[in-house]
Nucleic acid binder design. Structure first.
Length: 856
RNA sequence: GCCCGGGUGGCGGAACGGUAGACGCGGCGGACUCAAAAUCCGCUUCCCGUGAGGGAGUGAGGGUUCGAUUCCCUCCCCGGGUACCA
């Protein structure tokens, strides 16, 4: 009989079964059973735009493989999906075409849904959400109010990143190389009133708790660098002329005695006052003006020549009384430390560059490296050789020209004593500084979650009462931003009453950064239909943390950091009990085409829809998992897809044919009822080997490519046995009669197992082939277990080496002792030419592996 | 500059410190066919050799080891993150 693998028939048929029976839905009542410990598998919230691309395909192929594998191990798996639906692309489209962002977004969601269903991903659709719908964003607003009440929201004037093309403010995180991450425009600095979440309050905990989660180490490193904790000291320098103290932060208090000037950032609030009425005033103001309006990208470059202007004022170095001139210079940043620094040109490259440009003195306070002195001589003065290394010298060495308490000691050691000494003298104190900034969440855009506050002339900022939520995003005529949110034009909506006094008031017209929407969606899934609360602590306790989170490394910093912050803050407020949201993180690699990132402009986009129409989704899913290690980037190859499709076709055909040589029986999936011999035994062994290999590869290793390769090997073995019994290789069948019956039984078991092992990747093919062979549903079967007795062999190939080079191989009994193996090896004729005239120095024997003879 | 990854056949990639190149692609040869497609079988790291076989080989150079793709040091190249962060 003719067997043809027809995914276009098979796949929709099984998808219909899963949809009809709601196979992947999990009821909250089940999850509240204390005996159930749900496994929460989650892919990062997709932004719906057009159609899903191959990156999504890979994301869900990986996630679904994990979900299926866990289910087959008897776990209750929860696997929801939703849409990150607010955001700029839909709004930019609206500006261009006039189409309401809601319509465009809903259209994209419909297209995503259609594709995701066609992909056969095992999603619990009953929990689907979209962040732009009022039933979702009312809770985003509710959470905003909680943060507000907890003092974690602040509105303040800030120098912000202004994107002149999108006409909106950007978070630091959205500025890449001085350019807006979406528009690509050079970002300008402007002073505006903005809303912030005080994520910096959590800097230390966000850093510390990285140690409690299982994430790729490079992602943790990126977060650590972003948080940027520096230990140092704060030291106050008093202005000689005005008597004002100016604190600086330094990580190098050991170089305090080497300060020769003092620098303030152009944004420093006291700069104007310090020069008011002085001859320097005009020049300083001109410089500051220029620095503040300079585009961020220009200012940020480290290799840019240093510029600045002297204020004509001075500070006194508290540790030695030195009188230091104050400069304003744009290489000092206002938003790190205190916005003012002590400059130590002898031991800091930047200060040195500035000193050179302006003819300022350079003072050595650290001698050169301790040439000839080993590290364990730290503090042993006699060991120092005070080499005079060229300045600036940023390395370590003995302290010189400073203070009798420190001179001669190693600077790293002096550093420790310095903080205590400063505190003792009342001149400074130890201090920790973070690079992390507060999270700027307001956007002057339309398509986002309205910020639920009202501005009252009497009462200032008044939060909208909970029972008036959601503050519904109104429709507007014109989406184009004009320096303020398009919402400002919705007069009927903007003009409201103050919740406190009932008097006329105006609504806040900024909307929230979409990262706020996606910082808590994983909590909403636990109770997606709850109309009384964003989530139920009983459910978040049952689900959280996410056991396996899967997404692109591009979210390594922002989304993951914000979500962690949200959980910690909400836990502190008592509305949640989740310290870390994502226990295990897997970051998938990108799929490229012809070695380059896929993009419309390059014309190298691979559309999942086209692949699926041609080969079916099982091929597409299996292929993206087979391409290479899933955490690495991989290049798409059309020939490679065909190869995987050939493999799936082959397995399906073999299964269909084998099914006809017996009747469907669940027992077929479990083994055979006779003691196999010869080639049958080899096939059974290969089957158990594959079970063992695939199980190990899937168990937390994400070694999907080698798991699939193992099933390919098994399929090749099945095919070869099938040819022997059916004569498919051109010749006649070589196995007949009862031998053939046994061979077919072995083949049926092997084929059922191959299908079963492939189920996490190709669930439709697997379900179909497995049912033909066994009459039962593969997804309801336990994951197979390898039998030890088929994994062990009584013989192995002994490798015989001389000087570590392979010279011979021979079969040897598995249990042979070292002596027996050595004797066997030494007796081999092939070895003799390599031993002749040599003395055997020693022999290494690794039982079960090899013998290595070392000669001289 | 600093911090991470990564360099293995023609290509994607496999290899608890123990047979380098599993599996797939591509290529070559064969079977089936009037023919082609599909399918099936075999070969396929490079060099020397008709052959048996020998030699070289995991970015480069050192080291540790009986034995290194794997561990250590120095360097080169590619990718990512970050960058006047005091």
């Amino acid at each position: 009989m003719e067997h043809r693998y027809d995914p276009q028939e098979i796949e929709p048929r099984w998808q219909q079964v899963w949809a009809d029976e709601k196979t992947w839905e999990v009821d909250n009542a089940v999850l509240q059973d204390p005996a159930v410990d749900p496994v929460y598998v989650l892919e990062m919230l997709p932004y719906p735009s057009g159609e899903p691309h191959v990156g999504h395909l890979k994301n869900y192929a990986i996630g679904d493989a994990v979900a299926h594998f866990k289910r087959r191990q008897g776990k209750t798996v929860v696997h929801p999906l939703g849409y990150d639906a607010f955001g700029l692309p839909a709004e930019n489209n609206a500006i261009k075409t006039g189409q309401h962002p809601r319509d465009a977004t809903e259209g994209s969601i419909a297209s995503f849904q259609e594709q995701f269903r066609r992909w056969g991903v095992s999603i619990d659709w009953s929990r689907e959400l979209a962040t732009h719908r009022p039933e979702y964003y009312r809770w985003t607003q509710w959470l905003f109010l909680k943060f507000f009440a907890a003092g974690l929201v602040e509105r303040r004037s800030a120098a912000v990143n202004w994107d002149p093309v999108d006409e909106t403010v950007l978070a630091n995180e959205q500025v890449i190389d001085g350019r807006g991450d979406r528009s690509g425009a050079l970002v300008e600095i402007r002073q505006l009133d903005q809303w912030f979440f005080k994520i910096t309050d959590y800097a230390q905990r966000l850093l510390d708790d990285l140690d409690t989660i299982e994430w790729p180490s490079h992602v943790k490193t990126m977060q650590r660098n972003w948080i940027g904790r520096s230990a140092g000291a704060r030291v106050a320098f008093r202005c000689e002329e005005t008597g004002t103290d100016y604190e600086v932060f330094t990580t190098r208090p050991d170089t305090l005695f080497g300060a020769t000037f003092f620098v303030m950032a152009p944004e420093h609030p006291d700069v104007d006052a310090l020069v008011a009425g002085t001859p320097q005033e005009a020049e300083v103001k001109a410089y500051v003006q220029k620095a503040l309006t300079a585009e961020r990208g220009e200012r940020g470059a480290a290799d840019k020549p240093k510029t600045g202007v002297a204020l004509g004022r001075h500070v006194i170095n508290p540790v030695n009384g030195d009188r230091l001139p104050i400069y304003v210079a744009d290489y000092v940043l206002m938003d790190y430390g205190t916005g003012a620094i002590m400059a130590v040109p002898g031991h800091d490259q930047r200060d040195f560059d500035f000193a050179q440009a302006y003819g300022l003195p350079v003072k050595r306070v650290i001698a050169g490296a301790n040439v000839g002195a080993p590290d364990d001589h730290l503090g042993d003065e006699a060991a120092w050789e005070l080499s005079e290394q060229a300045l600036p010298y940023v390395g370590d060495g003995p302290v010189v020209n400073s203070h009798p308490d420190f001179d001669g000691r190693h600077n790293r050691e002096a550093l420790e004593g310095m903080n205590a000494w400063l505190a003792e003298q009342g001149k400074g104190e130890a201090s920790i500084n973070f690079r992390l900034r507060d999270w700027l969440v307001s956007r002057q855009r339309y398509w986002g979650c309205p910020i639920p506050v009202v501005h009252c002339p009497e009462h200032g900022i008044v939060p909208v009462p909970e029972d008036q939520l959601p503050v519904v995003l109104p429709d507007v005529e014109d989406y184009k931003p004009k320096g303020k949110s398009p919402l400002a034009a919705a007069e009927e909506w903007v003009n409201t009453t103050c919740p406190t006094c009932g008097g006329p008031a105006k609504r806040e017209t900024d909307t929230l950064d979409t990262f706020v929407d996606s910082s808590w969606y994983f909590l909403r899934y636990t109770d997606a239909l709850n109309a009384q609360a964003p989530f139920d602590p009983a459910m978040t306790n049952a689900w959280m943390p996410v056991d396996q989170y899967i997404g692109g490394v591009e979210h390594a910093i922002l989304h993951l950091l914000y979500s962690r912050f949200f959980c910690k803050a909400l836990t502190d407020m008592g509305v949640l009990n989740v310290n870390e949201p994502f226990q295990n993180l897997f970051t998938q690699g990108m799929i490229t085409k012809d070695g380059a990132k896929m993009s419309k402009s390059k014309g190298n986009v691979v559309a999942p829809r086209a692949i699926i129409e041609r080969f079916g989704v099982d091929t597409a899913r299996t292929y993206v998992c087979f391409l290479g290690p899933p955490d690495q980037d991989a290049d798409w190859s059309d020939e490679g897809v065909e190869g995987v499709h050939r493999f799936l076709s082959r397995l399906w055909r073999l299964s269909a044919e084998a099914a006809e040589h017996g009747s469907p029986d669940a027992a077929v999936g479990r083994g055979i009822d006779f003691e196999p011999e010869g080639d049958d035994l080899e096939l059974i062994r290969k089957t158990h080997w594959a079970i063992d290999k695939v199980s190990q590869d899937l168990d937390g290793r994400f070694a999907f490519n080698t798991a699939i390769a193992a099933v390919m090997e098994l399929t090749n073995a099945i095919s070869s046995r099938r040819n022997a019994v059916a004569g498919g290789d051109g010749g006649p069948a070589t196995v007949t009669g009862e031998d053939a019956d046994r061979a077919w039984a072995a083949i049926r078991f092997a084929a059922a197992t191959a299908s079963s092992l492939l189920q996490p990747f190709a669930p439709h093919l697997s379900s179909d082939a497995y049912e033909r062979l066994t009459g039962v549903r593969v997804w309801e079967q336990e994951w197979p277990t390898a039998e030890q007795r088929f994994l062990q062999r009584d013989e192995f190939e002994l490798v015989i080496q001389v000087q570590g080079k392979v010279r011979d191989r021979v079969m040897a009994p598995t249990g042979a002792s070292k002596d027996e193996l050595q004797e066997l090896a030494m007796g081999r004729e092939k070895l003799q030419p390599f031993l002749e005239g040599k003395t055997i120095v020693k022999t290494i024997v690794v039982p079960g592996k090899l013998v290595n003879v070392v000669v001289r």
